[in-house]
Design a protein around this nucleic acid. Structure first.
Lengths: 340, 340
DNA sequence: TTTAATTACGAAATCGTTTTCGTACTCTTC
DNA sequence: GAAGAGTACGAAAACGATTTCGTAATTAAA
């Protein structure tokens, strides 16, 4: 009596296994009276179908995977919230995989997922877009996947991104209007398209205002914490005159704050800074941080919706139109860190 | 040729399915030469075993579930990081379920997991300890689970917690020594044991210093955001003299900061505050927030280790000794928000 | 030389569902 | 009342792995 299964249910009911299965799935072949009996006993004996048997037979797992570079990061946590809100509604399960910003790790995870464990994948890429073969394998295997935020534009898959170029332009325009003379862009990696879009917006704004190229600084801080600390610290000593920093990610802005505190640089007097960020405490920082805030929850929601659409359409002929690419808007919050 | 499976592999190799399966599992029954051939072709044809067939037969899923109240919260994100670090090593998969602090939601999730989808569960309870039947059902079904942080002490399961009583005492002691006259404890719920342990520490310290009971305030702020805002705001108007606040969770401290900013209460002059928190920006707030910081990553790691130990021991006789309960220490960081 | 043990493999059952057929039986309809 | 349609169910074949047995062939022991 360890575990209830459909066979025991059938025996108990004096019905065949197939009849019970059909009854549980509300098949038209079974008459109402029988269905009721089956449902009643199933509930009474606390029957729950074995998910693996079901997945094996139906070739569908009711599970999706989320592959992200890191999780202890407000942006990604909020995205997961958005994803979960949809998955929960559709009774799907959510597997989480963390790449720790290591492209090989991402490849390994994606390759593993080729085995059919999930019906679809949501990816925020850690890749340097050098090696795309794992994405191609997904396409070839017919496993639906959707990129969010960190997309790979060489791959023909649905994407949910934000208006990074425009946001970068807007942030930089703001710094220019606040009378900065030198401008620095804090970059995570020059291999990531999101970051590069933000940088392109940054550069475009500076170009439009004809800023002296020698006053433009691109700081490749990288993903390693201690290293990026050192790189930023080195850049700030000596401190360029009227420096305006546009940080492409929250983490680097926080590091900059720490460094400024350490070596006594006053924000916003000596240095203005604005950053992409979903920090719930941005307004409470000393000084309050001006931010470009991505609609993280919506990104997760939209990405999940696209994925489930993709899963539903699986097998059916794809429309010839290009795959959907949803672009959401980030919001600019002007706070004290960029005060004149 | 859609998907590779063991049958096709066997045919290609002129071997039986069973031989191939054994070879892939490095069985002693198969000679080295055959194993090599099988492994070689498996790699060449990119064979990956179907996880559902395997799980169905072996009755094990190589998957664990993490059930948490919310994810957009530094503490839980860090815990997940810790959990993932162990799961990844053991090649386990991690399913995430979010209860949004709704006990019924938690029950529903746990009940669903009785179907064998996972080999074990890590739980940070959202329950009010009124209804424990779902935990009992886990025990009865023999599904291993471990509580972390928010444990239910009526249930005989392994737990990883922190020294909440002591930390609460320490935080309060600190406030007393900083010459506070009135003392407030911001609580999420009087049904949660973690919170109550912190409160007990708080009350014990006040008792030891013989603080006038009328100067002690327990604020039940609750989990609803707008409501808790209102409750805290109401409490702060009018502002008790020399108020020292001990916030049991980060979120309420942040709300308090926002309110103080809004109604112009100066921290730490008019109000001192210390909070349990894993905010990476605690030191950068205005003013820097004194915190009790839980070793979130370690909590996740230890809980995962206990769970896997439990999974390995499944079926074997349990030792008569009480189940393991690991207590980790929180760290006190004194910052400006409690300055004299 | 006979017996026992070991080696290396294969047939088939099994895990618990789902789904395709097949088939009694009843009910129309002309 | 014969043919066709519809109803309600059951037998059995999947799904793809794992595992239990059984057994030839070889080797070792007596």
């Amino acid at each position: 009596m360890e575990n209830m299964n459909i066979k025991k249910l059938a025996k108990e009911l004096n019905l065949s296994v197939s009849t019970v299965s059909k009854a549980l799935h509300d098949s038209y072949e079974i008459k109402a009276e029988t269905k009721e009996k089956v449902l009643a006993l199933a509930k009474q004996l606390n029957y729950q179908p074995n998910p693996f048997a079901s997945s094996l037979r139906r070739n569908s797992s009711k599970t999706i995977a989320v592959v992200i570079p890191e999780i202890a990061h407000n942006f990604f946590s909020l995205v997961i919230n958005g994803i979960e809100s949809i998955a929960e509604e559709l009774k799907y399960h959510v597997l989480i995989y963390i790449t720790h910003e290591i492209p090989e790790k991402e490849e390994q995870i994606i390759r593993h997922l080729l085995n059919g464990r999930v019906d679809g994948i949501l990816i925020s890429s850690s890749g340097t877009s050098n090696n795309n073969t794992h994405y191609h394998e997904l396409v070839q295997k017919g496993i639906p996947f959707v990129f969010f935020d960190r997309a790979n534009f060489e791959i023909d898959a649905p994407k949910v991104i934000t208006d990074d170029y425009q946001a970068g332009f807007q942030a930089t325009d703001h710094l220019i209007k606040r009378q900065c003379k030198h401008f620095a862009f804090l970059s995570l990696s020059n291999q990531m398209t999101v970051i590069n879009h933000r940088k392109d917006g940054f550069l475009a704004a500076l170009k439009q205002y004809q800023i002296e190229p020698s006053h433009v600084h691109i700081i490749e801080a990288g993903t390693d914490e201690t290293l990026s600390f050192q790189i930023i610290r080195d850049f700030l000593q000596p401190l360029p005159e009227s420096l305006g920093i546009f940080s492409s990610v929250e983490k680097l802005a926080i590091q900059t704050y720490h460094i400024c505190k350490e070596i006594n640089i006053l924000i916003p007097n000596q240095l203005k800074i604005i950053s992409f960020s979903n920090l719930p405490t941005a307004a409470l920082l000393n000084p309050a941080l001006s931010t470009l805030t991505q609609p993280a929850f919506s990104i997760g929601k939209e990405a999940a919706l696209l994925l489930f659409q993709s899963i539903r359409n699986k097998g059916k002929i794809q429309p010839i139109t290009t795959l959907p690419q949803i672009v959401l808007k980030s919001t600019l919050f002007i706070r004290e860190s960029t005060k004149m």
